[in-house]
């Protein structure tokens, strides 16, 4: 297993060699070719770390410049006017829009994806399941710009009726009231994001459901459980952490999604109680749509909002990775 110990005189007997042994093992390369090759590959690894550090440093640096000039509170201001005198901008609206649209997306995508994953692994005939899994894999590769084009030219016109309906029956809640603008609000964005992250959540949960020990399922069946009871008692408990991490990966995608949101959303720098009315934007969408006419100050302000997005996605992805790492054997996420 441990190749590099081949070069040491006595291979270590323990599974985890001590630090000194590791160093000796790595340094076992004495030929010039070996040293160059080790240097190259280690250098690549270090280069990767340098890139990450550079990303953090440069974004923070430009963001600090922008926030330093910001006359309003960066986190609570409902305005985006970095070129005004005085420059005032804040991320409150963007944070609201990003969180809300992601929540809608997750609320739709997670149950549906788990359903498809179950369909592929437990309900569909084996061969059909394989074909569907393959197609879902392919769909994960459809670029977001195409989803955006489809969303704005096909999905949006379809949603008029649904919006009116929600307004008629659920308008009293305030959350689903609708003033009658084109259906290009956060709710539509949530639906589109849900469609976009379906494939990835499905793929990961499918892998997890595949790994459920056959014994557990057969035991449940032998006790007379129906198929649903097998799933509830054997499959879902086993796959819970996998589903959670799959959802987090999907959430990471939804948070950072740019072009599709920029095309579909009709942004308004304000917060509305109703999801169906214009109001809110997302971090990524705001960057893409404001970038065109941004001055240097404007660009720095956008970079500052990008930094916030970066930190949020880091936290979400980190949480997902931690859950995966804790139960490593279920991980299907090696993409």
């Amino acid at each position: 297993m441990d190749i590099s110990t081949q070069n040491t005189a006595a291979p270590p007997v323990t599974d985890q060699p001590s630090d000194a042994q590791q160093k000796r093992a790595a340094r076992g390369a004495t030929r010039p070719g070996d040293r160059i090759f080790l240097g190259l590959s280690r250098g690549s690894g270090i280069f990767l770390l340098v890139i990450m550090a550079a990303i953090a440093v440069f974004l923070t640096y430009r963001a600090a410049i922008a926030i330093g000039k910001d006359e309003a509170n960066f986190f609570t201001t409902f305005e985006w006017n970095p070129t005004g005198t005085p420059p005032e901008f804040g991320i409150a609206v963007l944070a609201f829009g990003t969180v809300v649209s992601s929540i809608i997306a997750m609320a739709i995508a997670v149950p549906v994806s788990v359903g498809i994953a179950l369909f592929i692994t437990h309900y569909a005939p084996r061969r059909i399941g394989g074909v569907i899994a393959y197609v879902v894999d392919l769909l994960a590769a459809v670029p977001s710009i195409v989803y955006g084009l489809w969303g704005v030219l096909f999905l949006v016109p379809q949603l008029d009726g649904l919006y009116g309906w929600l307004d008629d029956y659920l308008g009293w809640t305030g959350v689903f009231s609708w003033q009658g603008g084109a259906p290009r609000s956060l709710f539509t964005v949530g639906i589109l994001l849900a469609i976009m992250i379906l494939p990835i959540i499905t793929n990961v949960s499918r892998e997890v459901f595949r790994q459920v020990p056959q014994m557990h399922e057969e035991a449940a069946l032998a006790l007379g459980a129906t198929r649903w009871e097998v799933i509830r008692m054997a499959v879902l408990p086993f796959g819970r952490s996998g589903i959670i991490s799959a959802s987090m990966l999907g959430l990471g995608r939804a948070l950072g999604e740019t072009m599709a949101v920029a095309m579909v959303l009709s942004p308004l720098f304000d917060i509305q109680a109703s999801l169906l009315d214009y109001g809110g934007g997302t971090f990524a969408q705001n960057i893409a749509s404001k970038f065109n006419e941004a001055t240097e100050m404007g660009r720095d302000a956008l970079i500052a909002s990008g930094l916030v997005l970066f930190v949020i996605t880091l936290l979400v992805n980190g949480a997902a990775r931690m859950i995966i790492a804790r139960r490593k054997e279920y991980s299907g996420a090696n993409a």
Partner: peptide, 8 residues
């Protein structure tokens, strides 16, 4: 790095 949004 896998999770970095493309816009970032």
């Amino acid at each position: 790095m896998t999770g970095i949004p493309s816009i970032v």
